[in-house]
Simulated scan of single mutants.
Amino acid sequence: MSDKNKQILDQDEHLMDHDYDGIKELDNPPPRWIMLMFYITIGWSILYGAYYFWLKEGDHQDAEYAKKSMKHDDKYQIASLSADELTAFTDEASIAEGKQIYTDMACMACHGMNGEGNAIGPNLCDEYSLNGCDFESVFNIIKNGNPAKGMTAFKGQISDEKIQKVASYVMTMQGTNPANAKEAQGEKCE
């Protein structure tokens, strides 16, 4: 028996009684693995509906987003400091940590390793400032940035406490005279 005859015999057993213009339809069931996936999908949808809608055990998208946002804010301590808490650190450990953060966040790419400034960023060591001379101004420019001048906002990258330490370190730079310092920019601080 040839392969062609065998195929015709196999088709004959799958033929349905349905006939239209001489065209006969084969009853060709889907493979078992597809049917298994189909039944698993139906079962999963029933469990999903029960968990989220009928029993109301699971959170909907907006509640889940709020929870994840709170976890993120807690992890990175994004909550803003009040004006009373916004003071410059003076202890050596905080200043050293501020210097480390200055290095880790690559501030030297724009302001130089010692705050001397370069073609991109201003000199942080002189008595002049583009954004205000007080600690709050330095803190705010590090936190919120100034996109028009190319200053990155760091509020989404580090916590307010770390920004406070970097600002404290930057304030200790004022009055130092590093080599190759950039010329003064902005208003003179009094």
Rank of each mutant, 00 (worst) to 15 (best):
W44P: 02
G150L: 01
E85K: 13
A63L: 11
V166K: 07
F89T: 00
N146Q: 14
P31E: 09
H111L: 07
I78Y: 08
Q11Y: 12
L124H: 03
H14Q: 14
D91M: 07
Q100G: 06
D10S: 12
D74M: 05
K75W: 01
S2G: 11
S2E: 13
L36E: 10
N177Q: 12
A63F: 08
G49L: 15
Y52L: 10
I158N: 01
C110S: 08
D84R: 12
G145Q: 01
A119K: 08
M171F: 11
M151G: 07
K24H: 06
S159M: 03
I42E: 05
W44V: 14
W33V: 11
G150R: 06
I142H: 03
V166Q: 07
D59N: 10
D73W: 10
K4V: 05
V170S: 07
E13Y: 11
I46M: 14
Q61F: 12
M171R: 07
L36H: 03
I142N: 01
K188C: 03
D91Y: 04
G98A: 07
D21C: 03
G43C: 06
A109M: 09
D19A: 10
K67W: 10
K99T: 02
D59A: 10
W33A: 14
P29Q: 04
D126P: 03
E190H: 14
Y102R: 05
N140Q: 05
I42G: 08
M171P: 06
D62Q: 02
K75M: 00
Q185R: 05
N131Q: 12
L130R: 04
G156V: 00
Q7A: 15
K182V: 08
L15V: 13
T87G: 09
D59H: 09
Y51Q: 07
G115Q: 09
G58H: 02
Q174H: 11
M173K: 06
Q174M: 08
V138F: 09
G145D: 02
D84Y: 09
S94G: 03
I163F: 05
M16R: 10
T41C: 07
P122Y: 04
W44E: 10
Y48E: 04
P30G: 06
Y52H: 12
Y65E: 12
E97F: 02
K143R: 15
N118D: 08
E64R: 00
A96C: 11
N118C: 05
T90E: 15
M37A: 15
K165H: 02
N131E: 09
I40A: 10
N5A: 12
A179L: 15
A109F: 09
M113K: 10
D74R: 11
M105R: 08
W33P: 09
D10C: 07
M37T: 14
S168V: 01
D21T: 00
S80N: 15
G186K: 11
L81D: 13
C110M: 12
M35T: 12
E136T: 15
S45F: 15
G156I: 00
G156T: 03
E127T: 11
N123Y: 02
K4C: 07
N5R: 14
D74F: 11
H72Y: 15
D3H: 13
E97G: 01
M16N: 04
I8A: 13
F154Y: 08
A93D: 14
I23D: 05
A167H: 07
